[in-house]
Computed example of a mutant assay.
Amino acid sequence: MTAALTLYTNPMSRGRITRWMLEETGVPYDVRVLDYGTTMKAPEYLAINPMGKVPALRHGDLVVTEAAAICAYLADAFPAAGLAPALADPARGTYYRWLFFAAGPLEAAVSNKALGVDVPPERRALVGYGCMADVLDTLEGAIAGKDYLLGATFSAADVYVGAQVSWGLQFGTIEARPAFAAYAERLEARPACRRASAADDALMPPSA
């Protein structure tokens, strides 16, 4: 695919995940930095993402939003990067499982914790993730004793899950278990992750 790639982002957003994913693909891309409440809500951008939030990715005439979807899309759009198992590979199911586990139960549980929402036991069936302890135990079981979610093979699922783990550890919304710390450390050492972080850090406001 030779169509131009444009990332709409803000350095204080989930756009950091998609920049990391783009760096992992090795494909050139342009960046448009938007500001909360102004350019992110302007008619020009709302025509791209009516939600008025970032990230969004334009690939030629196609627009993809939601960080997990962008990661999955890029892995398939640029298969030479080897960031997703082939469709016929049984590991494809495991890849989908953890990518969307992080986009669903993990992110919901972490968001509720950050907001101070404590779901009572009798209402846990309504929230999709049950309770934080179950989410974290499940996640720990997925990464303990191996380098990546697919074992020895890094994938786009590690980009999305790893970003969630790193942020959770940084901001205290994910319990600092040894397996999580080791996983985050491995991922943060990847050259693509370091390049993406440096690029976004350079865009941060001085007071941030």
Rank of each mutant, 00 (worst) to 15 (best):
M51V: 14
L106A: 08
A84I: 00
P85M: 06
I48L: 13
M132P: 07
D147Q: 15
K146P: 04
D30Q: 14
L99F: 04
V64K: 06
L106N: 01
P79T: 07
A69Y: 09
D118L: 11
R124F: 01
Y95K: 05
I48N: 05
A114I: 08
H59F: 10
I70R: 01
G82R: 04
A47H: 12
W98I: 09
V27D: 00
A42C: 11
A75T: 11
G52Y: 07
C71V: 15
E66G: 10
D137Q: 13
G82E: 00
D118K: 12
D147L: 08
A75N: 01
G128P: 09
Y36D: 01
G145V: 06
A47C: 07
A80Y: 04
Y129T: 04
A67G: 13
G60L: 08
L87Y: 04
L149S: 03
L57I: 11
L136R: 01
T38R: 15
D61R: 12
P85W: 12
G116R: 04
K53V: 15
V63P: 00
Y129G: 03
Y45T: 01
M40S: 15
A91I: 03
M51N: 14
R123T: 09
R97C: 02
T38K: 13
L83M: 04
N49C: 04
D118Q: 13
E44L: 11
K113D: 00
A103Q: 07
A47V: 11
F100E: 00
V119L: 04
D76L: 12
L106H: 01
E122H: 09
V33K: 14
K53Y: 05
D35G: 13
L46Y: 10
F101M: 03
H59L: 07
Y148T: 06
A88Q: 12
V33W: 05
G82I: 06
A56L: 07
Y148M: 02
A67M: 12
R92M: 07
P55R: 06
E122I: 12
L46G: 02
T94K: 13
P90I: 07
A56P: 12
I143L: 10
V110F: 09
T94I: 14
A133N: 05
L46K: 15
A69M: 09
P105G: 06
Y73M: 09
G52N: 06
D76C: 04
L149W: 03
P120K: 08
N49R: 07
I143D: 00
V135N: 00
D134I: 07
Y96E: 02
R32L: 08
A80I: 07
F100P: 02
